[in-house]
């Protein structure tokens, strides 16, 4: 079980958090303009990366804030956390 450094609360046990999948998938501003294919890309298609992944987490049993996290999915090593409005670090 990881220890996650919530950007608002500090280090907490993973059991306080909920994972929210791949980060930086922006909801299309004009969904009606999209083809079925393009909409499916947004809705279902995922990178599902093995390696360094940018992902969303929610401190659901804490401050309830969403934030982003960089984690290596091959060994679960957490590399960074950053707030939703912060620029993602480079990896």
């Amino acid at each position: 079980m990881f220890i996650i450094n919530c950007p608002f609360c500090g280090e907490r046990d993973q059991s306080e958090f909920k994972a929210g999948g791949e980060a930086h998938i922006i909801r299309p501003k004009q969904p009606t303009e999209l083809s079925d294919d393009e909409w499916a890309e947004y809705l279902f298609m995922r990178k599902n990366i093995k390696g360094v992944q940018f992902e969303r987490w929610n401190h659901i049993h804490g401050c309830r804030k969403w934030f982003n996290l960089v984690r290596d999915t091959s060994n679960d090593e957490i590399k960074a956390v950053y707030k939703m409005d912060e620029k993602p670090p480079t990896y």
Binding site: G21, A40, E41, M45, R46, K47, N48, I49, K50, T73
Partner: peptide
């Protein structure tokens, strides 16, 4: 579990999470 990794090699994305 590694389907997405192979798909990526072919330039495809799949609706999967591992």
């Amino acid at each position: 579990g590694h389907s997405s990794v192979i798909a990526d090699m072919a330039g495809l994305r799949l609706p999967l999470e591992s």
